[in-house]
Simulated scan of single mutants.
Amino acid sequence: MRAATPTRSKGEPTIGLINIVFLMLIFFLIAGTIAPSPDPSVTLVSIAELETRAPPEALVITAEGGLRIDGIDWPDTPEAGALAYLETLPEPRVARLLVDRAAPAALVVSLAEGLRGAGAERVVLLGERALE
């Protein structure tokens, strides 16, 4: 009888995977540096210093919970102001709310629901794009 020779188990092909990932990394690094850069003689527009203002058709909700319609502070309750704003919109009525980030969330939700209930086809919240 012969003695059984020990069988060697095959290892996992991790070295091959590491090589493939490494080659992909090198490829993308080189491809990114080869990509054409903008023309150095062109100076791009900087919009950081521009003064921004609300679109004229937007209902502005301030940090204190007040409303501003067409740049004028609404003296009555926010609910009455939202309904008055809705009456100024043409058909189809799309209400645009420009909300201060410190405005009470409960007020924003109740005004949006009130506008939808009063006949607004859509309620759109306006905001700013994040700086990257």
Rank of each mutant, 00 (worst) to 15 (best):
L97C: 03
V108C: 06
I61H: 04
E87I: 07
R116K: 14
V108P: 11
P56S: 09
L59T: 01
W74N: 08
L97V: 06
T88F: 03
A63W: 03
G65A: 03
P78I: 06
A95V: 12
V108E: 12
L111H: 02
D100Q: 08
P92K: 11
R93W: 05
E51A: 12
I72Y: 04
A58Q: 08
G117K: 13
I69V: 13
L50T: 08
L86S: 03
T88Y: 00
L59C: 06
T77S: 15
A112V: 03
S110M: 14
E57L: 04
A54D: 12
T62F: 05
D73P: 12
E113F: 10
R101G: 05
V60S: 00
E64T: 13
E79Y: 07
A84F: 07
S110H: 11
G117E: 11
E113M: 10
D73N: 08
A63R: 08
P55C: 00
A95H: 13
T52E: 06
A105V: 12
D100N: 15
L115Q: 03
E49D: 15
V99Y: 07
A80F: 01
I72N: 11
L59N: 06
A63S: 14
G66W: 00
E57H: 13
R101I: 07
A95E: 12
A102Q: 15
I72M: 11
E79G: 09
E49N: 13
L50Q: 14
L111I: 12
P92V: 01
V60W: 05
P55R: 11
R53G: 10
I72V: 13
I61T: 02
